[in-house]
Design a protein around this nucleic acid. Structure first.
Lengths: 242, 242
DNA sequence: ACCGTAGCGGATGTCCCATGTCCCCTGAGC
DNA sequence: GCTCAGGGGACATGGGACATCCGCTACGGT
């Protein structure tokens, strides 16, 4: 064990040291050829292996957990984690809420990015879409229309609709990213109060998207999606204006 | 210390408690109307305010730092941070490298997402672009061509080119995201060894994008960008095939 | 009077130790 | 053969001690 003698390799900024420690841990995972699901060494082993104290190590470990790199199971051990963007969502939610209290900039930028992603990818997704997946999308639309007619909110159906739209791409990273945006949107949506929105109109916007997709008209699908986001953007602007 | 009786609010999973603590801290920031740059209470104050030990608190604090929510300055204090996606980049780099060792799936998905973002937003960016910004883009292309002709790698110029392409949108979130993707790409690019790439061909692809942008032809700009990404995708596939 | 610097106070960084809590695994009992 | 209580290992939490760093201030030289 390379006990770093007396001096921890020169004092860089503490921040740099922490980042270096995280990198070391990740490097160690890569070196040992661990795959998702494999167990990491115990905390104590890592302490001695990396030459740092347990608390210092744990701080890095928690960061890696938040980043979705590792999974920590109390009382059992630590493992290489499957993709997980939960914490990223929390960070973005925080930023969006913070911005809503001031100028609402970040919240609007978030919508821009989500719009670019959805409008930009709908074409490729349509290329790969099966009849079954198309039917699933319509089902979501129907559910939104039914709930809307009953005066009930349909956040879940809305969420389903958007996931199904991009299911054919089979791109987990994209799913995670869109999931994050959705989560953020849902949170700020509940924060800004959604009372004033017209459920039937929202359902109709989604119906329009579905129609374009079913017809195989990529340009119109992208355009309808864009319009859908214009509505969201307007609502955020209204709230910030207060 | 207001020891909350004997038992902390029922024992949920430790994970949930940590997340709750993070939320509490963020809630506290929002409640006190702190803006980016404002100072947070000291660690000890937070310990008593939230009723947890310093170690536990610090673990949450480090996570928030990694998420770019707060900035910690050794010996001075903690502050609400401006947007910062550094750590996210590290997490993604790790995932991409991990995937390259197996099937390369995540790396390819990353390229897909980046492609959707760039191709999807180029149109809007062109709407807002000024003559000066357009000139800046051409300058990047020229630099790439010069360096390429001299046989030198031009990662920086390439990076400049892409940032300038979307500068008109003035969307910090997008910048951060693209910055993350770029950083990941750069890392895996250096990992997979870039020796075999044809510098002149890459420069030409960028020149084509510029020409389309300068001509105001949105469809062709998006198409040229897509082709540019096809090249990247192919190179990753080649590496994984080994 | 001005300016540079050494020292001070406070805050974070690192570490150790003790104890609580949880989980998987094993083996005894049915 | 199956079930469940117990053991052991591993993580969670909290407290304390000491090191390190930063910005500010007050001292002393010019």
């Amino acid at each position: 064990m390379p006990s770093s003698n007396v001096v921890p390799p020169a004092r860089f900024s503490a921040q740099a040291r922490l980042r270096a420690l995280q990198s070391d841990i990740m490097e160690l995972i890569l070196d040992r050829d661990l795959e998702a699901g494999d167990a990491l060494p115990t905390e104590n082993e890592l302490c001695t292996a990396l030459g740092v104290g347990r608390n210092t190590l744990r701080e890095s470990l928690k960061v890696l957990q938040a980043l979705g790199v590792i999974e920590i199971r109390h009382g059992f051990g630590m493992f290489v984690a499957p993709s997980n963007f939960e914490a990223l969502a929390d960070g973005l939610i925080f930023r969006a809420r913070l911005s809503l209290r001031h100028h609402g900039l970040e919240a609007l930028q978030l919508v821009d990015v989500r719009q670019a992603l959805e409008a930009g990818l709908i074409g490729s997704s349509m290329d790969l879409m099966t009849a079954g997946q198309l039917a699933g999308i319509e089902e979501s639309v129907v559910r939104m229309e039914e709930l809307g007619a009953a005066g009930e909110s349909f956040v879940d159906a809305d969420s389903d609709f958007h996931s199904r739209l991009f299911e054919p791409l089979n791109n987990e990273l994209l799913f995670n990213l869109l999931g994050v945006f959705w989560k953020v949107y849902r949170k700020i949506h509940s924060e800004i109060g959604a009372g004033a929105e017209d459920l039937a109109a929202v359902a109709e916007l989604h119906r329009n998207v579905y129609t374009a997709v079913a017809a195989g008209d990529k340009a119109r699908a992208a355009q309808e999606l864009t319009r859908h986001f214009d509505g969201i953007r307007r609502r955020i602007s209204d709230v910030v204006a207060d």
